[in-house]
Design a protein around this nucleic acid. Structure first.
Lengths: 141, 141, 141, 141
DNA sequence: GTGGTCTAGACCACG
DNA sequence: GTGGTCTAGACCACT
């Protein structure tokens, strides 16, 4: 029985979220990878399957999957399904630095008027980062 | 003795920015306050004045000012103009914590697939925070 | 009159083409840039405008434009339009090398059974490349 | 004296490849011919045999063989199997020129936005072509 | 069954 | 007016 069973995705769609649905899916898949819950070679749920699970339109899933494929994160095979791709160094170092700087900028912007001290903000970020790391580490052991 | 001369706003509209123009204005005013360049009681430039300064549509300025008023950051006094409001505890402690958590979440999301280490991300955030603090400190001295 | 007029795109949709319509648009825009017919800062035709010109569905144009934006080739501004972005080094050197190798591979595959000599194939490629270059050069002069 | 033992095909199915499996088989057979590993009169592996060798669906092999037969590259003899056909001038000179031009066009399209110089692209194509030629030459000697 | 494209029409955010 | 998302349904290619 060489048929692969798709890995279930632990993604939740929040209608109140400012991000569009397809972006929530893209981010969700990225998070699942960062957490180590899905690894290269894994088969993702089908358009229709994930659409049914999330009770959204299959085209919306298609849009999300298509962007993931375009970003080189998954490989799609007609008639077979979508597979998590081997991690590649797609973006240039400079581009990645720019994106990080941009993300930091936006984060500071959202945070600045909340009245927290630098240390409070930093420790919150650190907590979130270690949360991800420990989840990934547990899974690998 | 009401202040008659509006404080100039040091805001720059970047057309390449992903944020809409009105959001850039809102953020700009917030930053000016965080840096201490404008303080409670200051008079802000008029709709038309700021629109002319930034060479944008007055409606866009109106939208930005309206959101600032809505957030309790400025008070509009009929016939006089828009004034920076006394800092009020608009947000509850819990609400502020939630907003911080939400901002952190979004930031992690944007950063996660860039392949940076936790330390690299943290130091970048720290750098951005201290940058702001020093600017604010200089002004107060 | 600071209103920008969109640059007309010289794109032709071939229904018999193996590439989907949206891909033909993406490639078309890329070619127009390579030829120097559109340069950074230029305004592209609107969804609806280009859709009307090509007599296709606006969503199809949206898909093409969205991919161009995702690839960092254009900047989209709600309410304003799509602008050609400043050229960035988005892809890593290694990734670009891989893509070139992949393209060469596919090209050889398509060509191998046609019975042409290596020199014939090479000169045909060279001719196509210089065609593009000269068009770009003429435009710049 | 018909040849009874089929020539083994040195074809590798790459799941990460963008081409569908049946196309990989078609291309694979063409490459084997170009390299001189199989010659007119040779017997190809059976549907089921090749399907078993590549661990794929026999229908997929059937589709590939059917396309090869359709292109006049192989002849199927009832009850005997598939044989490599005598090279026929299936395509007119004009048709072949058109196909070459089309392939070049697609290649340029894939390459254009990668930022390589004309010389870099040409040398990469040349390298790939000589690679093939030397393999073919070795076999003939 | 799988991924993927296209159309049509509704709706929202921005200027 | 601009870009952009979502739905619904039809259709195609691949296994």
């Amino acid at each position: 029985m060489p048929l692969l069973k798709p890995k279930a995705l632990n993604i939740e769609i929040v209608t109140g979220d400012s991000r569009p649905i397809f972006k929530q899916i893209v981010d969700g898949v990225r998070r699942e990878m960062a957490k180590g819950r899905i690894v290269p070679g894994d088969l993702l749920p089908s358009y229709r399957g994930l659409a049914a699970q999330l009770t959204i339109n299959p085209n919306t899933v298609a849009k999300a999957y298509s962007q993931l494929a375009n970003d080189g994160i998954v490989d799609s095979r007609k008639g077979l399904g979508l597979f998590v791709a081997e991690p590649r160094q797609v973006l240039s170092k400079k581009e990645k630095q720019q994106r990080l700087a941009h993300a930091v900028d936006g984060f500071i912007n959202d945070t600045i008027s909340l009245g927290f001290s630098d240390d409070q903000i930093l420790s919150e970020v650190e907590r979130a980062l270690t949360d991800l790391s420990t989840q990934s580490a547990k899974r690998a052991s």
